[in-house]
Design a protein around this nucleic acid. Structure first.
Length: 110
DNA sequence: TGAGTGACTGTAA
DNA sequence: CTTACAGCCACTC
């Protein structure tokens, strides 16, 4: 594991920061990538306490739904995503499968 | 110490 | 894709 030196939350931040603009990822996938397949809720918790430099708006649930939008406090999340080229309709990411970012492809986690 | 809650997910219908 | 149920962990009261 590449981030095993950091805490779970720090790992989440690190991975989230690596998400390229115009791409999104799911809580569960991040958790799984870090070695905690059932800790999706902890990813959400971590991002809830995330520093300002973490692009948490690129992280959605498995259906591509902007569950964090409400917590973001308005439509900031949706605006940010749209600014990066991600179509958002009714709190849902359009072409979610296509926009999904797979950490394994970029980082060669093995 | 224990019950309640949550930025979730897998399975089933 | 949605809805419903159960499981999961950390945090708050």
């Amino acid at each position: 594991m590449k981030f095993d030196k950091s805490t779970f939350a720090e790992q989440v931040y690190a991975l989230t920061k690596l998400i390229p603009a115009g791409r999104v990822c799911s809580y569960g996938f991040i958790a799984q990538s870090l070695g905690y397949p059932k800790q999706a809720r902890m990813v959400g918790w971590a991002l809830n306490n995330c520093p300002a430099d973490v692009p948490a708006h690129r992280v959605v649930n498995r259906s591509g739904i902007l569950t964090a939008k409400l917590v973001f406090g308005g439509d900031k999340m949706e605006v940010l995503l749209k600014a990066e080229g991600i179509a958002v309709v009714d709190d849902r990411v359009q072409e979610f499968k296509k926009k999904f970012w797979n950490p394994m492809e970029e980082l060669s986690f093995e």
